[in-house]
């Protein structure tokens, strides 16, 4: 049995917190004189990440999963709303020193381990640089010790050989481990992992997830695990956030969400996920029309209303409020208000 519950609810400390996060992206103009139109990628998103916990962000492609992580790393800027890190709004982090400190604490891991390491440099270069930039290491011996320790922690042994290798000599799983090692080298506390395992082979995937679990428990890191595979989310995450079309749909304890989903969309998503205990003939819950809408600032109502079998008039008229239906189980649906 996995030991997921490490902290008691009362002891949880919030690391990253999003409040009413909204972001609009400008669309290409149809002509020079037509008014600028916007696409709303995230709309009023709220979530909390806790220390030593993993938050899984699940949803279909284009639902804003990566965008939320990108706002947290300051790659994108929110149109309105805010993300705060340990109580401080990340928008107020502007000076070079503050930015450096923030980026040391909050790191991102990308989906494609083949594109994110420089093919012209050895693993030593990739791991040494963050150590040089963030820490004052002068002696050669100390650097070697540090590098070896990091590689051992992420399960890349023998460290001496791995350091001299180039990225193309490593497998996808090993490269993802190098990346996790990099976040360890920097000393990051919060790691935003954007589909870190979706390009890896099945036999290697679990190894990387287990390493993330271990980093969480033994080194006290917290993770945001962005994925479309809800089964792996159940495996490593304490909390799960379900997104649909840039809106929070359901947020809460992972077991609660996967075993007792309340929102019609979460129910559909879970019923569709592959599971060997099911059969392909099992019927999906009913839903209408298959197109996921593209959200814009002018649109009203619940984004899922067009597909929801239980949609009522009010669902098309205004966006439901977020409601806490059980302790730590939040839902955004008119059926519960």
């Amino acid at each position: 049995m996995l030991t997921k519950k490490l902290n008691k609810v009362s002891e949880r400390q919030v690391t990253l917190e999003a409040k009413d996060l909204t972001i609009d992206f400008p669309k290409a103009k149809k002509s020079l004189f037509s008014p600028r139109e916007y696409l709303r990628a995230l709309n009023g998103l709220n979530f909390k990440m806790y220390d030593r916990h993993c938050l899984a962000v699940v949803g279909e492609s284009g639902c804003g999963k990566s965008t939320s992580a990108r706002i947290a790393t300051k790659i994108h800027h929110a149109t309105s709303g805010s993300i705060s890190y340990r109580g401080r709004d990340v928008d107020t982090i502007v000076s070079n020193q503050d930015l450096r400190d923030y980026r040391r604490d909050v790191q991102m891991i990308f989906q494609d381990p083949f594109g994110s390491l420089n093919p012209l440099h050895t693993i030593r270069y990739h791991l040494e640089r963050p150590l040089r930039i963030y820490f004052d290491i002068t002696s050669r011996a100390e650097m070697e010790d540090r590098l070896a320790a990091i590689l051992n922690q992420v399960g890349l042994t023998p460290a001496k050989d791995v350091l001299e290798k180039f990225p193309h000599q490593l497998s996808g799983g090993q490269r993802q481990r190098v990346f996790l090692g990099k976040t360890l080298a920097i000393g990051a506390h919060v790691i935003l992992a954007d589909e870190p395992t979706s390009m890896l082979d099945v036999s290697i995937r679990i190894g990387v997830l287990n390493l993330m679990n271990q980093m969480k428990h033994e080194m006290g890191k917290s993770f945001m695990y962005i994925t479309h595979d809800i089964a792996t989310a159940r495996y490593i995450a304490e909390e799960t956030l379900v997104l649909y079309c840039g809106h929070m749909v359901e947020f809460g304890d992972t077991e609660e969400i996967t075993q007792n989903p309340q929102h019609p969309y979460t129910q559909l998503l879970l019923a569709a996920a592959p599971d060997p205990n099911r059969s392909i003939h099992d019927k999906l819950p009913t839903y209408r029309s298959q197109e996921t809408p593209v959200w814009s600032p002018e649109k009203m109502g619940c984004p899922y209303a067009t597909r929801c079998p239980q949609a009522r008039v009010e669902c098309f008229e205004h966006l439901p409020e977020v409601k806490e239906i059980a302790p730590d189980h939040f839902i955004r649906c008119h059926l519960f208000s």
Partner: peptide, 22 residues
Amino acid sequence: LGNAFPTLTGELKAMTGIPGMP
């Protein structure tokens, strides 16, 4: 391989994958 796929239902077990590389 069967040990590398977490399930959505049933008890949550620690999984292991397969060591080494193809």
